[in-house]
C-alpha cells in the first residue's frame, strides 16, 4: 500500500461512506472498501477508470474541475482528494464542492515550501523536481503548487476547520521527527482532515 494511502486510511472510520476524487486506479478505495467502507471514485482518465472496473471499484468518469453536479449535498461521510489538488484547474471550486457533498474532507498535497525544493530553486535557479513532484516544468500535470501555509489560508477562506494535520515525508509516510510549527519548511507534504 502506498505510504500516503496508509496515512489517509488511518483517518477513515470503518463503515464510512467515502468519495475519492481523482481516484486513479482505485487502489486506495479498494483498500478502504476491504476495510468496510462504502466507496465511490471519480476519475477522469480512461486508464484509471478501466483499472477501477477491473478491481470492481465503483467509479464515475468525470472532470472534478467542472464540479460534482451528480452528487447531492451531504451524501458522503468523507471526501478524499489525495495528491490531486495541485493538478486541478480550480482548487477553490473543488474544495467548495468537497465541503458541500461530504461532512469531512481528507486532502493531501505536496508542500512547495519544503526546504529541499527551496534549496533546489535557490541553488540551481531551475524548477525543482522531487519524489512527490517528479515532472519537469514543461510536462507536469501539477499546475497549482502551494505551500502548507497557502493551503491553510484557502481552507479557512472556504469555511473549513482543520481537525488534524499529518506531515508526510517524500515517500508519503508520516513524518514523525519534525514539529508541527516547522512543517511548512521541513515537511515534503501534508494530509489534512477537515470539517466544516
Amino acid at each position: 500500500m502506498r505510504a500516503d494511502h496508509d496515512v489517509i486510511a488511518s483517518l477513515v472510520p470503518s463503515g464510512a461512506r467515502v468519495l475519492d476524487l481523482g481516484c486513479g486506479d482505485g487502489s486506495l478505495l479498494d483498500e478502504l472498501i476491504r476495510r468496510g467502507a462504502d466507496g465511490l471514485g471519480v476519475e477522469i482518465s480512461d486508464e484509471g477508470v478501466l483499472a477501477c472496473l477491473q478491481r470492481g471499484v465503483p467509479v464515475l468518469q468525470d472532470d472534478i474541475d467542472k464540479g460534482l453536479d451528480d452528487l447531492e449535498d451531504d451524501s458522503f461521510d468523507i471526501v478524499i482528494m489525495s495528491l490531486t489538488l495541485q493538478a486541478v484547474h480550480h482548487p477553490a471550486l473543488v474544495l467548495r464542492e468537497m465541503n458541500r457533498v461530504g461532512r469531512k474532507s481528507i486532502i493531501s498535497f505536496p508542500n512547495f515550501a519544503h526546504w529541499r525544493l527551496r534549496a533546489q530553486l535557490a541553488a540551481s535557479g531551475r524548477m525543482p523536481v522531487s519524489p512527490l513532484l517528479p515532472y519537469t516544468w514543461y510536462e507536469t500535470p501539477n499546475i497549482r503548487l502551494c505551500s502548507i501555509k497557502d493551503f491553510e489560508a484557502l481552507a479557512h477562506a472556504e469555511g473549513f476547520t482543520v481537525e488534524e494535520r499529518i506531515l508526510i515525508n517524500e515517500g508519503g509516510a508520516r513524518e514523525g521527527a519534525i514539529t508541527q510549527r516547522a512543517g511548512n519548511l521541513l515537511a515534503a507534504g501534508a494530509v489534512y482532515l477537515l470539517s466544516r
Partner: peptide, 19 residues
C-alpha cells in the same frame, strides 16, 4: 444517464458511469 447516476448514488447504490 447522469440523472440515473445521480438518483442511484444519492441512495448509496453502487454505480460506475462512463460517457
Amino acid at each position: 444517464s447522469r440523472g440515473i447516476v445521480r438518483t442511484l448514488t444519492a441512495h448509496r447504490v453502487p454505480v460506475t458511469f462512463r460517457e
